[in-house]
């Protein structure tokens, strides 16, 4: 197990490198520069700016600089937001995105597993059909459509929750999000994953419930509860666990959209604007952090997989 984790950690490094290199190559190849204005700069000014940021250096010098920055995880100052370093921006915005993303994933996991299991246990019942239809609707509904609908209902009609924005509350020196502001974004983001997880759980459970070891468990006289929770669920949620990796990667994109719907001060807008503004340090910094977060979570998922499935040994 230990050697497996070490091996996987070693794989993460080149993968972060690949992602960063692709992003770096894209931003180098892209037309336009961060200092470009509608009217254009006097050539002398442009020359100075290019010299200051080393834009005319050979590609390997620039790439080497990037690697040094990556090694210490410090990408220096943003070029668009001149007074802030990339790390300051990340420290301010990353917690928002992570709170939204993780709470969405947890909601999706809990509700998806519940509905999927119930649907599988009562296959072909009205409950099964209705939860699967709801799941299909969740998959088919873009979250930027669901979000405004929820805002319209819960914020602008019922006035239960704020329609957007974000607030931190200090509890004993730790900053926690004000839950009122978290609910709608988290639900909006979770809908798709909830739907996928419910479908995967249902399919997985249906398959497992037919297995011999379930029949054995029943024959031993275990209660239905024990059969389901101890034996079936363990095998049934394996597809859900292996879906977590891709889900995380798409969760990142989903967060970008949801942050825009609810005007959250998260990473998403900075990410897109960094690309639009050709703000290379910011773009590469965000890319690196997200890639690391996603890859580390993938590793955790693999470890969880081994714990859940006794057949897997590393």
């Amino acid at each position: 197990m230990f050697s497996f984790i070490v091996r996987r950690l070693l794989v993460i490094l080149p993968m972060v490198l690949i992602v960063i290199t692709i992003a770096w190559a894209l931003i180098r190849l892209a037309p336009g520069d961060f200092y470009a204005t509608e009217r254009g700069l006097p050539p002398a000014v442009e020359k100075n700016i290019r010299a200051k940021y080393g834009l005319d250096d050979a590609w390997y010098i620039q790439y080497g600089k990037l690697m040094r920055q990556l090694a210490v995880l410090d990408f220096g100052f943003s070029r668009k937001y001149q007074e802030q370093t990339v790390n300051e921006i990340l420290r301010r915005t990353l917690p928002v995105s992570i709170w939204v993303g993780l709470s969405a994933y947890l909601i999706a996991l809990v509700l998806g597993l519940t509905f999927g299991t119930i649907a599988a246990l009562r296959q072909n019942s009205a409950l099964d059909y209705s939860s699967m239809a709801a799941a299909m609707l969740g998959i088919s509904m873009p979250n930027f459509v669901l979000g405004p609908i929820l805002v319209l209902v819960f914020a602008l009609t019922l006035f239960w929750l704020p329609p957007g924005r974000w607030e931190w509350v200090e509890v004993g020196g730790i900053y926690l999000p004000n839950i009122k502001y978290l609910i709608l974004p988290a639900i909006t983001l979770s809908a798709v994953y909830m739907a996928y997880i419910a479908r995967l759980t249902r399919a997985g459970m249906l398959e497992v419930l037919r297995k011999d070891y379930i029949r054995t468990a029943r024959a031993k006289g275990l209660s239905e509860r024990q059969v389901v929770f101890r034996h079936a669920l363990r095998g049934g949620i394996l597809p859900v666990v292996s879906y977590t990796g891709p889900a995380l990667a798409f969760l990142v994109a989903g967060t970008v959209v949801v942050e825009r719907v609810f005007a959250l001060p998260g990473l998403g807008n900075y990410f897109i604007n960094a690309a639009l503004n050709r703000d290379a340090p910011l773009l590469l910094g965000i890319t690196a952090f997200i890639a690391i977060v996603v890859l580390v979570f993938n590793l955790l998922v693999d470890i969880a997989y081994a714990y859940i499935d006794p057949r897997i040994r590393y």
């Binding site: 993968m15 690949i18 992602v19 692709i22 992003a23 894209l26 931003i27 190849l29 892209a30 037309p31 990796g245 891709p246 995380l248 990667a249 798409f250 990142v252 994109a253 970008v256 990410f271 897109i272 690309a275 639009l276 050709r278 773009l283 890319t287 997200i290 890639a291 996603v294 890859l295 993938n298």
Partner: peptide, 20 residues
């Protein structure tokens, strides 16, 4: 496998934001 683990949509966003 490697590509699967990469947050692909991110690169697509970068690609589309950078180029015409």
């Amino acid at each position: 496998d490697v590509l699967f683990a990469i947050p692909y949509m991110m690169l697509v966003i970068v690609l589309l934001a950078l180029f015409e």
